[in-house]
Design a protein around this nucleic acid. Structure first.
Lengths: 195, 195
DNA sequence: GACAAGAACGAACGGTCGTACTATTTATGG
DNA sequence: CCATAAATAGTACGACCGTTCGTTCTTGTC
């Protein structure tokens, strides 16, 4: 890895942390230069615009997301165990980020706000929801879920629970919410199981 | 209503719309002055700081929220009908706002970001969740839900569904999500009903 | 219709924003 | 080790940020 790529990665780590706390739009190049100990222009040269920086932050987060959440979960047995592992990993990820999951943050931030950043984000969110859907599908294939279940419906309900957890955990700082979320998850799974 | 209060209310309408689209932090006084056709300083005089403006936007939204969602729902029969009415009203509210529900937006924006605005928001969110909890309680009292149900759990799961709807509706622009959400709501209610 | 209070304005402040240049330093391959 | 390319720094730009101040216009009251 060349020097440039190295610093860029270091910058993106800091930028991701900042985006998690303040949102993608509030990641300022000046502030980012300060915390990384670089000059504004030196940092700016790595990205060619702020929009690009935002897109790269999302990409960076996407790679981390994949390697910390999805890939490890795939090592668990397909079906219900894998679903639980995914949720567990997701909670771990979102709890580690200072201001919560950057995708959740960006998703509300770029609601109905046309542009390349939103397009990028939308693509990633569709990928994630597709991942959730495939989790449901794998549970069907493993015989853990009924054959006739609607996996899109499952993905929606599962994601909703993650969003609920996110709000309670980050805004309300409710420490018991993991238990509540688990209760809901168990109920959700039960509803999709064979009778 | 005096002239000043009148303009202030007009400003807050515009500000709320802007906050819904761009977030509370991105509501700039200059831009707000432009869209209201006022001078920056004239507008600024109504609030004494940006922080104050943000708090007033939340208050303004809170009043609207109450009158458009909660109060009308209370006119419906207690229990399950009222719950459904509340959800219906919430969806109407959030769909009318250009960038989605301002509270959802602000909740992710002010995640773990200490300050008076966050305190204000936190209070309002607790009120809202308490409202959801009381909805569950009223269903218990009406005999629609079992006596032993955990209303906090109910509130969490219901709010999660609203958040899921919000994301699918505003970011993914999934037009079928209302149906999905209704399916999930019916399942949620069924789970709490007497056996 | 005078007068005080309230409301809106215009200009200016120090800062920070993203971005564009040119220079200078540092890393890398022959 | 040196030439060249890559990476970083420095400086400046116009625009906008939130805020302050003094002035002017509007409103309602006696």
């Amino acid at each position: 890895m060349t020097k440039g790529e190295d610093t860029k990665s270091m910058i993106l780590d800091a930028a991701l942390n900042m985006a998690s706390r303040l949102g993608l739009e509030a990641v300022s190049i000046g502030e980012l230069a300060k915390v990384t100990g670089m000059s504004k222009s030196g940092l700016f040269a790595h990205f060619q615009s702020k929009e690009n920086l935002q897109k790269e932050i999302l990409n960076h987060a996407g790679r981390l997301f994949s390697s910390k959440i999805v890939v490890p979960a795939l090592k668990t047995a397909a079906g219900i165990p894998r679903i639980k592992a995914l949720v567990h990993n997701w909670i771990g990820w979102t709890s580690k980020m200072t201001g919560g999951c950057v995708f959740v943050k960006a998703s509300t931030e770029f609601n109905k706000r046309p542009g390349k950043v939103r397009d990028h984000l939308l693509l990633q969110q569709e990928l994630w929801i597709d991942c959730l859907r495939r989790m449901g599908r794998s549970a069907v294939d493993a015989g853990h879920f009924r054959q006739d279940v609607d996996c899109d419906q499952f993905a929606f309900e599962l994601y909703s629970l993650l969003l609920g957890f996110h709000l309670y955990n980050n805004l309300l700082e409710d420490n018991d919410i993991a238990i509540r979320q688990n209760t809901a998850l168990e109920a959700l799974i039960r509803r999709y199981q064979p009778v």
